[in-house]
Design a protein around this nucleic acid. Structure first.
Lengths: 206, 206
DNA sequence: CGTTCTATTAATAGATCTATTAAATTGATT
DNA sequence: AATCAATTTAATAGATCTATTAATAGAACG
């Protein structure tokens, strides 16, 4: 917050808001706090973003897209299916690792206010459909070949999602709870990353 | 809320609070709302529970214990390990299914305020230790026999926990999002329950 | 130099929320 | 019926939060 005198206030406010929303969620964060964090008057927050809700929306959509990104643009290449899958799991994992507070923000806000997703629903569905169908086709091919048990792509995605997300949802809490030091925690994450890949691959066996 | 004229107000307030906290979390629920839901004056909420925070604590601890209960008192019998495991997964699943909003409440509150766990930490650790050790011993025995790959009890629990919890964290949102009808949603849950058992069992294979 | 425009602040209206206090009500007991 | 404790309410203090408005400072420009 020192050398950004150049950066315009509009951007600083957005960044301050993002930080605070990620830490404490929408309702626990006040525009006064955001202004303090951004280093400006509280009225300025409203000057640029009109309402606290609009400010949140600006952040929410970006974060949501980022969160499901790996389920979109992964497969351009023609790696064998299993390699695709591993890549998908790991890139989803890495993405959350870099934004470990995002799952909290999304779950928290969507739980309280599911309509927040409404504007995104159709857009995302369309964007994902092609990718899902492609992945599903590959999966079904593998199943026909007898390499995997009969499983739907939805179930597969759900498993990946569950394992990766919960790790960080609970991990953040676990870390603060056990006062685990940084290195130990990172080792734990890395271990779970390998574990998650293994579990998903095993889950395809009969 | 009709035939509980007999029930005392203290209890009604607790129940109203529980309902609202589960729906909207701590910070989004006001004591005024709780009073309205309970059918009494707002001051009465404070009369019985002094502060909103104390009222929350009374609910939080109960819910938290309930949430981790299956990881405690399951194993008295001497079923084979795999049967134990299946029973554990399924009873954890069923418990959350009956209290589908509890994971949200716990994650949400612990995220924002991890110190909430502090008073419970030691007690729970002690209570769980014996069970964990017993389960771990059984697991290690199976590993020595060559039935399972080398895996820690922590990893195993983490997997069970992830699969079961995320289903309901995301499921609640999914249900509201897709306007899935009750039957479809229940079928989906039942399917995932079987799936979760399968995934966990598979995850033990080499 | 005065005007105009943008960014920013100070001040505040209006709503709401928690907690307290004092008064009213109820119901049991003498 | 009078008394007393427990329950419940009305009223409100005091804090805080969102949003708006009016004032100000400084850059840009003719």
């Amino acid at each position: 917050m020192e050398n950004d005198d150049i950066k315009n206030m509009e951007q600083s406010i957005l960044e301050a808001a993002e930080k605070l929303f990620l830490d404490k969620g929408f309702s626990m964060t006040s525009t006064t706090e955001i202004a303090r964090e951004a280093g400006c008057n509280q009225a300025l927050v409203h000057y640029y973003y009109r309402t606290k809700d609009k400010l949140f929306e600006a952040i929410f959509e970006r974060k949501f897209r980022k969160f499901v990104e790996p389920f979109l643009n992964t497969i351009q290449s023609d790696l064998p299916f299993e390699k695709h899958l591993i890549y998908l799991i790991e890139s989803h994992f890495d993405l959350i690792k870099e934004n470990p507070k995002v799952p909290f923000l999304l779950f928290n806000e969507l739980w309280i206010n599911p309509s927040r997703l409404e504007p995104l629903r159709m857009k995302l569905a369309l964007e994902h459909q092609a990718y899902f169908e492609k992945l599903d086709k590959e999966l079904q091919k593998e199943i026909k070949k007898g390499n995997y048990r009969n499983i739907s792509i939805i179930d597969l995605m759900m498993t990946i999602f569950s394992l990766n997300v919960t790790l960080f949802l609970a991990g953040q809490i676990l870390q603060e709870m056990t006062k685990m030091d940084e290195d130990t925690y990172n080792a734990f994450l890395l271990h779970r990353k390998k574990e998650n890949v293994l579990i998903v691959l095993n889950s395809l066996q009969a």
